[in-house]
């Protein structure tokens, strides 16, 4: 088992402006860009929206290759949507293969969708790659805090995210171990039809759930022993600090994005 490739969009420590920015700034700006991406459908607008993304990647110092690797898991979906658009959309025929025909409209929409998805993935990846999981959850908690009054459990969500991030490697390791242990008892996960394979997962899933519940139980006691009692009155080792840099970036990027949306 090799889980190394699962770490797409994983945090790459660094000291760049992108790393220094408050997570809230990065989240808001990328959210803004993503919204505009889906509102406009003008090629020029995409080109203009790509500018801040490319700029962010350049500033971050994260190897471009690594950023683009986050596109890999989506390659199949992109190709599929492109092909579907190309051949299914109405429009003037470009060429035909057998009974199916590619259209100019389809080509245009196909390209638009692929570009949209690409920019979306790049914009989110560069944020997650320059934001530590802690800063990320902190930022999320703070951004959602105003909604707490409407009953949204912002602190609990953030805590859940932290714990999930903390335990993902542990549970992956455990899955690997349980799989091997059952394989040592002759279990076969690779052959047979879907029904048979699904059934073969039971010897992995049951122990995994049992273990996850045990861990949750023990963790809850350990947290209680360390005086955890929810988000109220809690301080943080690192308080998020909204700096001048953040303000500048937020204003410039915000104005730019809005301008693109309005103008095109």
């Amino acid at each position: 088992m090799n889980f190394a490739n699962a770490a797409v969009g994983q945090y790459m420590p660094g000291e760049s402006l992108m790393h220094r920015l408050d997570p809230r700034t990065k989240m808001l700006v990328s959210l803004g860009i993503i919204i505009v991406l889906f509102v406009v459908s003008n090629p020029l607008a995409y080109a203009l929206l790509a500018v801040p993304i490319v700029l962010a990647i350049a500033i971050s110092g994260v190897p471009v290759k690594l950023v683009f690797r986050s596109l890999r898991p989506l390659t199949f979906i992109m190709v599929l949507t492109f092909v579907l658009h190309l051949f299914m959309d109405p429009g003037e025929a470009l060429f035909s293969i057998g009974r199916i025909t590619a259209t100019d409209q389809g080509l245009r929409l196909g390209i638009v969708t692929v570009v949209r998805l690409t920019l979306l993935v790049l914009a989110t990846s560069i944020v997650t790659m320059t934001t530590s999981p802690i800063a990320f959850t902190d930022g999320l908690e703070r951004l959602l805090a105003p909604f707490a009054r409407l009953g949204l459990p912002a602190h609990e969500l953030a805590m859940m995210m932290t714990i999930a991030l903390r335990f993902i490697p542990t549970l992956l390791e455990e899955t690997d171990k349980i799989m091997k242990a059952q394989m040592a008892r002759g279990a076969d996960f690779e052959s047979g039809n879907i029904a048979k394979r699904a059934k073969a997962m039971i010897p992995i899933l049951v122990p995994l759930f049992v273990s996850a519940f045990r861990r949750a139980d023990e963790l809850a006691v350990a947290m209680e022993a360390r005086c955890y009692r929810g988000g109220e009155g809690r301080t943080r080792l690192r308080e998020l600090a909204f700096s001048g840099e953040d303000l500048a970036v937020l204003i410039v990027a915000g104005a730019y994005t809005v301008a693109v949306a309005v103008a095109l």
Partner: peptide, 24 residues
């Protein structure tokens, strides 16, 4: 394996022990 009790999954002791011979 280490901590082998973590791999138990069946409803009864006998059927858990039977897992391997049945696979064979």
């Amino acid at each position: 394996f280490q901590y082998p009790e973590h791999q138990l999954f069946e409803e009864s002791v006998a059927s858990d022990i039977a897992f391997a011979p049945r696979n064979m």
